[in-house]
Simulated scan of single mutants.
Amino acid sequence: MNEISDRYRRTQDAFDAVLAAVPEDRWHAASACEHWTVRDVTGHVIWGLEVLRQHAGGQEFAVENGPAGSEKPGELAGDDPLAEWRATRSATDAVVTDEMLLRPAPTWYVANRPDATVTDYLALLTFDTLVHTWDIGSALGVDVRMDPDLIAPSFSLARLIISRTPGTFGPRVKPPADADAQARFLAFLGRST
């Protein structure tokens, strides 16, 4: 397992732990991700895994309600978001092999980065899942602490790929002078801690 795969799996574990703590009556609560509920954020993360899983099987995942800025990603979370997440994660993990990591990334991702590989896409999923773990946790009043070795590469990637378009990332927030790496990362993404 390479370093990127390890970080990817660790963020998946953290996301799972936060989802397991969501009370049944809080799936429709607002998340820290503007315009999305906890269920919507969960559906969006499921969508990212489905893109990877389908790509591994030689297909493109054409569902349009999961990407950033989409209106109803919560539909992908089904009636039991935690169970749906775990089933999707398990199915995706079964097809992510060392050999697959060297293949070209999914089509929508290579449109902007023609040389991108599945390893690059895993880095994107790691960044996305890391941030959305915090988005859900903060909505529930859970203090999500990100590992510094997950923040650094995700922050570097964010600086390269972030577009501040409606429905994606808002304006940067000025972090306090004494902010730690996590607070600076979240502030760059337009999130107040």
Rank of each mutant, 00 (worst) to 15 (best):
I161N: 02
G48A: 07
D115M: 08
S90K: 07
R164V: 13
D120S: 14
D40N: 06
A181L: 11
P153F: 11
L125E: 00
E34R: 14
D115Y: 06
Y109K: 04
D40G: 01
A17E: 14
V95Q: 10
E75R: 12
L189R: 01
P23T: 01
D149R: 05
L125A: 00
V38E: 04
P106A: 08
P104T: 08
Y109V: 10
W36S: 03
L186A: 00
D93Q: 11
Q12K: 08
L124W: 10
L130F: 05
A62H: 07
A32V: 09
D80L: 04
T193N: 12
I4G: 05
P148E: 15
L140K: 04
F188G: 01
M100L: 15
H28S: 15
Y121E: 13
I161F: 13
E50I: 00
A187K: 04
R113V: 14
R159M: 13
A29M: 08
P104A: 12
V95S: 10
H55P: 03
R172K: 12
I161M: 14
W85A: 11
T165E: 15
I162R: 02
E3G: 13
P81K: 06
V173R: 08
R26F: 10
I161H: 02
T193I: 09
A68Y: 09
G78Y: 03
L122S: 00
Q182I: 04
A30S: 10
A17T: 09
I46T: 01
G74A: 14
T92C: 07
G78P: 00
A20N: 06
V41R: 01
Q182H: 05
L124T: 06
G167K: 12
R9W: 03
G48I: 03
T88Q: 08
M146F: 12
D93S: 08
T129S: 09
F61E: 08
T133P: 06
A105N: 07
S5H: 08
A14E: 05
R86F: 09
A181Y: 07
T92A: 04
R184N: 07
L101P: 04
G48F: 01
D16C: 11
A179F: 06
I4S: 11
S154F: 01
Y121W: 14
D98T: 12
D143E: 15
D180T: 05
